[in-house]
Every structure is written in C-alpha cells, then in structure tokens.
Simulated assay, not measured.
Amino acid sequence: MATSFPVLYTRGSHFDVGYSIGSTFQSRIQTYIQKSFLLQDTLLPFYDTREGRDFVEAMLSRTEKNFPKYLDEVRGQAQGAGLPFETLFVNDLLMEIYFYFSQKPPQATKEDLGCSTVYINRPDVKVIGHNEDGENLARTLGYVIDATITGDDGVEEKFTSLCYPGGLPGVSIGCNYHGMIFAVNALDGPTIDKAAAGDFVLRALLGASNIDEVKKVVSNVGFGVSSGFNINVGSIVDTSTQWSVEVAPNVFESKVSIKEIHESDDPEKSTYFHMNEYRHLDIEVETAERSRARFERALSLPVPTCAKDARNILGDTDNKTFPIYRTVSPSDDYATVCTGMFDLLNKRFDIYMDNPSSDTGPLLRFNMQCEA
C-alpha cells in the first residue's frame, strides 16, 4: 500500500518554478533519467546520432518561437536538477522520438500506450475518473506540482498537476484556478515532423479558462502539433457539459474534434469512456488491441452511476493480458501510475496510488477552486 507521494507548492517566474521543481526533486529526476528504459534505450541514443541532433534542434527552434516561456521552465528545471537542458528537452519529445522518429525498435510499442478515462454526467453525479498509465518508475519517482506562475507579460497561471520526473506539467492529470480539469490519453495515430511538440501544447492547456480556449490552444494555429492526444475536460463552473477533445497532428493548425457529454438522467447517455483510440475525429487509424480490450471490458461492466462505480471500472483486472488497471507483467512494460478522480460537484480532485476499487481511499486530496 502506498503511504506517501510528494507535493511541491511553488511560485515565481517560469524559470523560477522550473528551478524549484528541479532542485527539490533533483534525486528523483536524476534517478528516473538513469533508469528509464524509454530514455536510456531509445531517446538519448537517438539524440546522439546526427539525425537525432538535427531533429531535436529543429524542434527546439520551433518551440522557441511557439512556447518560449515553457522552455524557460525546462531550463530552470534542468539547472535545478543538475542535468543538461538537452536531456530534459529530449524527455519532453518522448511521443515524437520514441514511437516514431527513432530507428531503433522500441521496448514498448504503440500497442502499449496507456490511460483509461470514465465520464459520468448525471444531475447528482459529475465525475471524470482517469487511470494514468506510464513507466512504472513514475509510481515511486513522480510528484505533484501546485504552482503559481507570473510571466513577464503579467499573465498568471495557477494549477495543480501530476508530473513525470523531469517532464513538463500538463501531460497527465491536473486542474487550474479557472476551475478546469484535464486528463490526457495518448492516441495511437500518425506523427509528423515540422510541427509543435505535443507535450508543450499540453503544458499550454493548463492556462485555459473554458472549452473555447482549450480548442484554441490545441489548434495551435501557426504551428500545429506533431503527435496526437485526447484531453478529457470538465469544469466546476459549467458542470452541465463534459468534453472529449481529440487532436490529430497537422502542420500549421491541428485537427480537432470535440464531443460533448451532456447531463442526463439516462445512465447510458450520461456515461462515456475513452482509452487510446480516436472515437469521434474522422481519421484512419488502426485501433491497438490493448486499448480495444480495455474499452470493451468497460462496456461489458454495469453502467456506472456513481464515483464508486467509476473506480471499480478503473480498478478492473479481469482481463489478465490487457487489464484496465495495469501492473508490470511479462506482457506489459507499463503500469497504472495512479488514478485521478475529479468530482466536479464537490470540487474535489483525489489521487489514488493503489487500485481505486479497493477500500484504501485516496492518498492525496485537493480542493478545486475557481478564482477567475
């Protein structure tokens, strides 16, 4: 049973917050970089090639134009952690390099992409639950950031986000002071060159105050996005609707589809599931067997009508080869790092470090606020 997981409360400029994260979690970040099979077997060896250097330099040039303030966070974090900036920047290009542009066959494949999400939007229950699946190291080396950032332009960001060691906030589960909640699923789809890195687009989402801003951020006009993802979105301000936002790669402007999950007394209409496949954006992609198995298992279970039902689905291990709640096994290099439960009516964000269907309860609990 998990008994602790660190939370850092930090404020300052983008660089200052990055430095605070890096210096506070220096040991965790360095250990993750040293032990991560994603980094050590594929990402860093790719960067050591001429092709890899050219690719990373091109991505860096685009990011300098598109998201310079978030590069300041990476620079601060690298300095605080005592690591080269390039190492952490490469870490933020995981989806692009690991699954698509490296020539070395990866240990984990697109088939292993993770995360599962359950929506419930009833008049009396408004919940989004999410399994965050990733490298098992993140269970012991990850952390949560509660940050207040004031940039040179005077724009303030306040958010709470689960973070992978050395990575940008925003790529997993989190919420912000506009009352918006976000849970991200990687999508098995095409990846392209000459567009913005997906992790930086997701980092920018933490500043969005409504669904229109979410669409603007992920469209990223002028740069697009290089890798696809799904963002499961809710709001404690507008609880009548929840949103599934699917994004596909495109140069200059991303392809975006938004499905609305409206409040309903009908259990079938008030429930929605999303794993690692495109469900509503018109795109030709073969569905991964692991994602399909989790989706079909969720559909086979009783329709959820309360938070406990959602947790039971997210904790399900009936399919021993492709379970919804994942642990490292001979057939799976990834694991469920944690489960995030967003209760929009009660304005609560809970994080379960153990199987959420058990009676252990959440290890971390945050009160969501709207200060806008």
Rank of each mutant, 00 (worst) to 15 (best):
V7Q: 00
V7A: 01
V7I: 13
Y9H: 12
T10M: 02
H14A: 03
H14E: 01
V17S: 05
S20F: 09
S20Q: 13
R28N: 14
R28V: 05
Q30V: 13
L38E: 14
D41C: 10
L44D: 04
P45C: 01
Y47Q: 13
Y47V: 09
T49F: 06
E51H: 11
D54K: 03
F55H: 11
E57R: 04
K65P: 09
N66D: 11
F67S: 15
K69V: 13
K69L: 09
L71E: 13
L71M: 15
G76I: 02
Q79M: 15
A81S: 14
G82R: 14
F85M: 00
V90A: 07
L93A: 15
Y100M: 06
F101M: 15
F101R: 15
F101E: 15
S102D: 12
T109M: 05
K110P: 05
K110N: 11
L113G: 07
L113S: 04
C115T: 01
V118T: 02
I120D: 12
R122K: 15
R122G: 12
H130V: 10
N131A: 08
G134A: 12
L137G: 13
I145S: 09
I145D: 06
A147H: 06
T148K: 11
I149T: 05
F159V: 05
C163W: 01
P165D: 02
P165Q: 03
G166M: 10
G170F: 02
C175T: 02
C175L: 00
V184G: 03
N185C: 08
P190C: 14
A197W: 04
F200I: 10
L202T: 00
L202K: 00
L205E: 10
L205K: 07
G207T: 13
D212C: 00
E213R: 09
V214M: 08
K215T: 10
K216V: 06
V218W: 04
G222E: 11
V225E: 00
F229Q: 02
I236G: 07
I236A: 07
I236N: 06
T239I: 14
T239F: 03
Q242I: 07
S244R: 09
V247S: 09
S254Q: 06
S254D: 11
K255P: 09
D266L: 03
P267C: 10
T271S: 04
T271I: 00
N276K: 04
E277V: 12
Y278E: 08
E289K: 04
R290P: 08
S291R: 11
R297C: 03
A298T: 06
S300T: 02
S300V: 02
V303E: 12
P304I: 12
P304L: 12
T305N: 08
C306L: 08
C306E: 13
D309H: 12
D309G: 10
R311I: 02
L314S: 11
D318R: 07
N319Q: 06
K320D: 11
K320T: 14
T321Q: 09
T321H: 06
P323G: 08
T327A: 10
V328A: 13
S329I: 05
D332T: 02
A335Y: 01
D343K: 00
L345C: 04
N346A: 14
K347A: 08
D350T: 04
D354L: 02
N355Y: 01
P356Y: 00
D359Q: 12
G361Y: 05
G361N: 09
L364R: 03
R365S: 06
F366W: 03
F366N: 07
M368W: 01
Q369R: 12
E371K: 08
A372M: 07
